[in-house]
Amino acid sequence: MAELSEAGGRPRPTGGLELYAWVFMRVSGLLLLFLALGHLAIMHLIHSVEEVNFAFVAERWANPLWRLYDWLLLMLALLHGFNGLRVMVDDYIRSAAWRVASLVSLYGLTFLFLVIGSLVVLIFQPMAGG
């Protein structure tokens, strides 16, 4: 009980945030397994990294389903990692100042990467360079 007073007392419910975070970790972990293995197979087994250039990406992303695939992989990986770090901060950083600093940078960076990643996936124009 974070809210457990020295004398004891009723804990405050968290409105399910931790519950949803827990479910998300399990569901995203499972999805990531398949998405990441698929990614690995496409980029390293079927093709090789030498083949991956602008033309390759442009051709692949002409199909919105592949954009969705890559976007989902990126979002899930980012949020999965974000939640893992959030939990570690919660567990191990006890000083208030360090807590605030780490959480602010964590939330900030995650948001930034989410925006940048989404922008790239959304506004990439296959024809412009092709």
């Binding site: 809210e3 804990p11 405050r12 519950l19 975070a21």
Partner: peptide, 10 residues
């Protein structure tokens, strides 16, 4: 409620 609180099972 007690078990699902912030410092409960999570």
């Amino acid at each position: 409620v007690v078990l699902g609180a912030r410092d409960g099972v999570w």
